[in-house]
Amino acid sequence: MTHIELVELKKTYPGNHQPVLNHLSLEIHSGELVALLGPSGSGKSTILKLITGLENPDDGQILFDGKSILPVAPNKRGAILMFQKAYLFPFLNVEENIGFGLKVQGANPETIRTEVKKMLNLIGLPEVEKRKPSQLSGGEQQRIALARALILQPKSMLLDEPLSSLDTEVRVNLQEAIRRIQQELGITTILVTHDLNEAMGMSDRTALLINGQVAAVDQPMKLFTSPPTQSSARFVGVSTFFKGNLANGVLTTDLGKLSVNTNGHHADSALFAIRPEHIRVQTEPNTNTLQGVVSDCMYRGEYIEYQVEIQSLNVRARVPMPAPVIPHGENIYVYFPPEKLFEVSQK
């Protein structure tokens, strides 16, 4: 299939000083699904517009299998875009909608009919050919939009939050369907989302976009448990950071000493982080505990979330049930398992 390479992409929208994309580079391997995750305004959707040709980059290159596609007209690139709304043509029925692209290519009606049938079976919605889009639910409309894209056997699929306006159940169903079909057909796919779970659950690799640059890109599990930078760590839900002097596997911070797992390197100023679900609270001091005061304790169903103030540092810990409810103002000890503390760069 298609190997996509984004090289040093730069884009500034007219009237804005801040570039949306600032020398962004990213490689998407053939047949891979890469999720672009980032806050709004991070340039996720712009990347898709550049690849499809709806916008042009100010600078940089976009390569499909090593060849630049920038000179190619948007309707000849073979990159299909799906939006948050299905955008089925309201004046066409389902069959005509799905067959739209083939009709443009000049396929004969018989071929179109059989291909449409195949697509409807693939997306699990047989026998809706004659319906109008307005007679379908939001989830069904998105499935039809997916079929309309897939019928062209696209080189790549670009999904711009196609599921974010759907109900949870429908969304999960469609996530599974898209992932299954994408893997079956081996279509190189970029999924833009602001939903961490969606990115983690669907992608081969997830790229974190912050301020128009790729802050981190890795397999979801690695990105989730050990994000490389402070800002990317914050984005995947890490809120506890320790800064201090690192020597002989011990991090000396303003709050106390913590032992950490390192390959033995030294640093005057190192930054370590830990995920909230890896932090534990206990009543007795131990190695790697710091004393603090509970400022909040909230029952969240599957876990209890504690907010603990350790001097000036506010630590959020998620402890799975069963866990004790600790009253506000109580003194406790917070345990940071050494193997769970990971180093991040201070970007």
Partner: peptide, 15 residues
């Protein structure tokens, strides 16, 4: 009017 209908047709190959 929502121009995305046109964008959709464009990426589907229409001139």
């Amino acid at each position: 009017y929502d121009e995305n209908y046109e964008h959709q047709a464009l990426v589907l190959g229409s001139s």
